[in-house]
Amino acid sequence: MKIKTEAGERHVLAVTVDNEAGILAKITGLFSARGYNIESLTVADISADHALSRITIVTSGPPAVIDQIIAQLDRLVPVHQVTDLTDHGAHVEREIALVKVAGTGDKRIEALRMADVFRAKVVDTTLTSFIFEITGTSDKVDRFIALMRECGLVEVGRTGVVAIGRGAEAL
């Protein structure tokens, strides 16, 4: 017997939650317990009184599973609001990566030239290394990192995706 899996589509969810201990564990635990995917998850406090956090989750699944994920998140007691930005309309997604590249000579020059093309900033340098800060969609960050692998990439740190809907309205 073979175990079947279903193909899915990528969705970006914005989740507003009470900023309390254990909430992140509750949400990541829900995903693992029910077998949902997490491609990326970011969380930070967003209100003036530090009472609320916003969690951005990139997940994937068939439409019925995405609907379940939203319903399951929404019924958690500390969750205020769940929005599927992918369904909601146009939105902006950004991710930051810090990319450390070590090397000398042509590779070093090539790394700097490509960083310029990608509008990555140099945030630290030594005679044998750069740290680039790149901001963009996950695709853009992926492509930049792939190129840097050819130019002496030694270390990467990524934030995961944050996203927000376009236009004047708030969620």
Partner: peptide, 14 residues
């Protein structure tokens, strides 16, 4: 306790 019961309660508190 809150870790163990996080996913078998509707909600929990420490």
């Amino acid at each position: 306790t809150v870790g163990i019961t996080r996913h078998c309660t509707k909600h929990n508190y420490l």
